[in-house]
């Protein structure tokens, strides 16, 4: 009972917002090109989602046809770039972060450079990335991996540096080798930080993918809303924006589920 009431109160504000929005449009208070009605956005969204052609078995399976809509195509394109960029960025940040956290020498060597590069927003790399990689996926993936790199790096370094020394003492008392200390104590002890970094990195990657699609590629959700602007299709812009929001929410929920599943042992993560 309590749960339903909770869920009901959760939709209250969004419903009111949509109601107000609908009122604005149907009373004719705002121009439909500036702000289309929610209904118009929904219709557009459906058109955007739907397959463009009629089903033709010669072209492929039914399932393939279902996923042939423009929106699905764009969303998958964005998702692909986010994941590829994230894997590259985090994949480079993790080993470097572990090394910098573990070894004072490595930290002293790399930290100055990291501190100088870190405040540069990924967006500032756009000109250089186009100069280096031209147009298409490569510059986009490059930008996204820069976005994912630093959060994962910084959190991994902190995570390793903050491993409670008592655990290392127990490890030595039990006779653990340096390798065992690293894999069975330092690494698991640092995972809460690493996951936090990954979640932040994924969020950054998602922001960067939209921007980079507006500049370097001609598909994906970011490209699509910019393209819609050229034709003054504000309904499609808003439909695209909502899709971006939902996809971002989906990714973040997945990340948080994954980390609370893997960090069942951790005190601070019960709330998920």
């Amino acid at each position: 009972m309590k749960r339903y009431r909770h869920a009901a109160s959760g939709v209250l504000v969004p419903l009111a917002a949509i109601g107000f929005w609908q009122l604005l449009s149907s009373m004719g208070w705002v121009n439909a090109t500036i702000l289309p009605s929610p209904m118009a956005v929904l219709v557009k969204w459906w058109a955007y989602l739907r397959p463009l052609e009629v089903f033709d078995p010669a072209q492929g399976s039914y399932l393939q046809w279902c996923f042939s809509g423009e929106l699905i195509h764009d969303a998958l394109g964005s998702l692909y770039r986010v994941l590829l960029g994230f894997v590259i960025g985090a994949g480079l940040a993790l080993p470097l972060g572990l090394t910098m956290g573990y070894s004072k020498v490595a930290y002293a060597l790399f930290n100055p450079l990291v501190q100088v590069l870190r405040p540069i927003p990924p967006i500032a790399y756009i000109p250089l990335s186009i100069l280096w990689f031209g147009l298409g996926n490569p510059p986009a993936v490059f930008l996204i991996s820069i976005g994912a790199f630093f959060p994962v790096l910084m959190n991994t370094v902190t995570g390793v540096q903050n491993v409670d020394s008592i655990y290392l003492r127990v490890g030595r008392n039990l006779g653990a080798s340096r390798l065992t200390q690293f894999t069975r104590i330092i690494l698991p002890a640092a995972t809460p930080y690493i996951f936090t970094g990954a979640r932040i990195g994924m969020g950054t990657a998602f922001i960067v993918v939209i921007v980079s699609e507006m500049i370097a590629v001609n598909n994906g959700l970011g490209y699509r809303i910019l393209e819609a602007r050229e034709y003054l299709w504000s309904d499609k812009i808003i439909a695209g924006m909502f899709t971006i929001g939902l996809l971002g929410l989906g990714i973040d929920t997945l990340m948080s589920r994954l980390s609370s599943h893997l960090l069942k042992w951790h005190r601070g993560l019960e709330q998920g």
Partner: peptide
Amino acid sequence: RGMVFQEYALFPWM
């Protein structure tokens, strides 16, 4: 020289 620490120091991830 096995030691039982005053703070227990169990590995929380195990």
